[in-house]
Design a protein around this nucleic acid. Sequence first.
RNA 1: GGGCGAUUAGCUCAGUUGGUUAGAGCUCCUGACUUACAUUCAGGCGGCCGAGGGUUCGAGUCCUUCAUCGCCCACCA
Length: 875
Amino acid sequence: MKELSKRFDFISIDEKWCKYWEENDTFSAKANPDKEPYTIVIPPPNVTGILHMGHALNNTLQDIIIRYKRMKGFETLWMPGTDHAGIATQNVVEKQLAKEGKSRQDVGRDAFLERLWEWKKEYGDTIIHQLKKLGSSCDWNRTRFTMDEGYSEAVKTVFIKLYEKGLVYQGERIINWCPRCHTALSDEEAEHQETHGHLYHIKYPYKDNPKEHIIVATTRPETMLGDTAIAVNPNDERYKGLIGKKIILPLIERELEIIADEFVDPEFGTGAVKVTPAHDPNDFEIGKRHDLEFINVMHPDGRINEQGGKFNELDRFEARKLIVKELKELDLLVRIDTHSHAVGHCYRCSTVIEPYLSKQWFVKMKPLAEPAIEAVNSGKIKFHPQRWTKVYMNWMENIRDWCISRQIWWGHRIPIWYCQDCNEIIASSQDPKKCPKCSSTKLRQDPDVLDTWFSSWLWPFATLDWPQENEDLKYFYPTSSLFTAPEIIFFWVARMIIAGIEFMGDIPFSDVYLHGTVRDAKGRKMSKSLGNALDPLEIISEYGADALRFSLIMNSGQDLFISKEKFEIGRNFANKIWNASRLILMNAKDIDPDFDLGKTSVCETVALPTRWIIAKYFETVLLVSNAIENYKYSEAESHIYEFFWNNFCDWYLEIIKDQWQDTTVQNVAVKILENSLKFIHPFMPFVTEEIWSIIKEGEAPISVQNWPETLENADNAKTLSSMQTLVDIVISIRNIRSQWKINPKEKIECILVTTSDETSSLLNDNSSIIKALAKVGTLSITQELESTKNNATAVVENIKCIVPLGALIDIEQEKKKTQAQIEQQQKASSTLSNRLNNEKFVSNAPTEVVEKEKARLETIDLNIKELKEVISSLE
RNA sequence: GGGCGAUUAGCUCAGUUGGUUAGAGCUCCUGACUUACAUUCAGGCGGCCGAGGGUUCGAGUCCUUCAUCGCCCACCA
């Protein structure tokens, strides 16, 4: 067997295995009828930039489960890819252009798109490269992009299907408009932030009596330029007589009428509302109800247009200032209250969103949502942690139509053409040559593109080449689980469920795991602008990919608070694994390849520490497996960490230090190491792969090895507990040795002091174990005795040492405590039996409650019996 | 305005269906250069489990009220 280098050089190891896995297609997957499929689709990172810590966490989680399932014998597919991220990517390229002093209009649509594709190529590749460096075991040959050719087919097909069903429609209404990005946004893309603004109270004079006025309140005074009515509640006594009265709109001098509408809340503001149907969703509705004029007073970039009279061309906020100033001068401003309310901001550039009247494409969501609600209600799709179900449901049940058209260039062009001659609207997945109605060839494609999420929601099946039918699609769809951040439940998760059911007739995945947000040590979100972002690649080069992965997962219960030092835990652990392996390789020379841990664990002649570590090992395999299955990754890691470091290294390897000539010891150490590498592998793929390749030279990589076998839990647990007392002795001996500075080679005399029957019988029954223990621990036993605290202390002074084995407990106190417990339990027992004897209770309570109470009574009675035995043993 | 989560050692967090004396890591302190590892080893200090009330023989765990922090949703101008 080869030896490990003295230094653990993660840089070259990371690189070596990245390359190896890729060159050997270790993770390629194909439909295999002999195996069960396990599929994950990656949440495709945006091609806007480089990977951040959130990605590192997200992909590590996916990699753990996929590597685990692969070792468990599933045909695993982890589908990689990237997202074109419409607005976001267009924005970064526009910024790039701006540095050259150009706008996208300057270069033109085609040239601009070319720039975007260049960008995509560079950053898409970078991201894939970074995912590989993280150790992600994706099937890289299948890497997809949300705008590659086949994918466009899927998008067009979906659009047309929905259009034909009447679920995609065009409509003119108030949408969220970003004046900076010059595009419509969906409701989800408007981020509402609590803002401290102002509520302006303005006088609107009557036409017939300009000295009198009605007072309205507004947060956006500039919208008054588009006012076409004043509304009051029809039941508001203050205003009843005024309905129908004419008003002259200040500054604009337009004539308005006071109308009555139930929507107006008499309690808010003055109870009178200025109505601006083109700039407010509620006013829009009022406008429709009362057949008002819709006056748009703004350019798409947020400047006032010619409708604004002398405010023409002013920016909306400039106009606001000026209008307030002029109103003041005209003595029409009553007062300004401070007012905090939620204001929508663009989720890509944080510009204040303008409610804006515009013609857009929408998806009718209600009918699509129903089966998606059912899928979660019926338990076909489960959220982990479960509480997210509520969030999902709340959105689904209050779902609104989805605005899907964007006035940008980067994205899937809407497959709609307009006939210039007869105004026919043509939906087609191919470019149509002529109008089917009038045969005109003057066709113009809709200039808009689709919301980026309109392609993302097809990801689980579009990546498998839908709408084409093929074997892979049938085999790998539906996928198994989805790992993502809660921020995109609505954007992505919910819509994928809708699309999966609608277009594939089946849910897209059965489990959704929502992980926490990565924050800095102070709890702030990591972001480039705050300058608190840690770069995963930097961590990888400083601590290693395994360290990055391990530390991230260790902290991944809820939100993660990450500082650089946290990665030391992972680095140290990887180093520990390396050095433990070194030690074992240096000492294990006589290795039996068929050595069976299961058999050895029940072999009575084997020394106690060895039997114990084997039992502990089997326990750990089970704990780790269960934790992974239940999506409790940090828990799995704690089990691994504790077993490997505390039990195996610090305890077992220390104890057997001078036992290496024993071949059983050698084999046990090697076998436990090998199998530990296996269950550590999903978490730390690089170091385990490297050590495995040295121990098992010539064998297949650990990535494709089988997951270690488990023993029946109950039996193993029994073995463990029966040995625990004895193991405590070993620990005590070691402690005494170190405290009393006794040379490890020197035999020490000790007395085993026992108090309970259980322990002494254990010692008697296991004299062979004691002997084995003596052999290992260089312990010689001179006498065994039962003792009280007092004579134990007396003994201490004369003898070299004693092994405190529960003997140094104050017997009197122990008795008292036990007695108190007995009394308590007896009380419980009597109340319980009273209850069970009460006919009312037995006949009225549900049967399972009665059964439960009976079971409780039984255990309590058993407890009492045991406690009484303890008392008698103390006497 | 509605919903969700958090509150346990100085810090970061575990704590499974209520059940003996509430755990770990880091920090701090004490000791060990024992050649696999100082990215180490052995030990120690440190907790009215956010506050009040309730259910129970028994509550960190269940119910209720409150406080503080965080997140999400929401078209009262």
